[in-house]
């Protein structure tokens, strides 16, 4: 499934770019992210608990940052697998300065498998959009904070 959209992050482009690649910020912003642990350059092991009303599932996966072009674009690849299925999101994020901050455009694909693919296709698009929205909302909130992140967020 293809996804695309954009959000306004109310900080300058450079800072937006840094925030979006900061594992601490990512860990706090990605919905359900429990832990994010560095396993290589721009690569992190992630544990996630997705909760959507009654639906919940534990996922074990990876977050990867690639094709980074400071401060204009990079690819964010998030994948996870658990008992209820697996998912993989691969998106190109493009940053452009606009009035009031930075416009972050995203374009990419979401793949799912297992039970969530078999029974969830009706809700996949809605859910993906909702998760992305939550991510940017959290990111915006993070960007408003002092920037002094607690190092214990990364285990």
């Amino acid at each position: 499934m293809k996804i695309s959209g954009s959000f306004l992050v109310p900080v300058p482009q450079e800072r937006a770019f840094r925030l979006l690649q900061d594992p601490v910020v990512l860990a706090r912003s990605m919905p359900g992210c429990d832990t994010l642990e560095r396993i290589g350059d721009n690569e992190y092991h992630m544990k996630m608990k997705m909760v959507l009303a009654s639906i919940s599932g534990l996922f074990d996966g990876k977050v990867r940052i690639a094709d980074s072009r400071p401060h204009s674009s990079f690819r964010l690849i998030v994948e996870g697998a658990g008992r209820i299925g697996f998912m993989k999101g691969d998106g190109l994020l493009t940053l452009t300065p606009v009035e009031g901050g930075t416009n972050v455009g995203y374009e990419g694909t979401v793949e799912v498998g297992g039970t969530i693919a078999a029974v969830g296709q009706r809700l996949l698009d809605t859910t993906a959009r909702m998760m992305i929205k939550r991510f940017f909302e959290k990111l915006t909130a993070e960007s408003a904070s002092s920037g002094a992140f607690s190092p214990t967020a990364i285990l």
Partner: peptide, 21 residues
């Protein structure tokens, strides 16, 4: 705690193990 009323939404999810309260 998950509340069960008629179960028409919750129980199918539990059967698929998408919900495991």
């Amino acid at each position: 705690r998950k509340i069960l009323a008629g179960g028409m939404s919750l129980i199918p999810l539990m059967k698929l193990r998408l919900a495991a309260p």
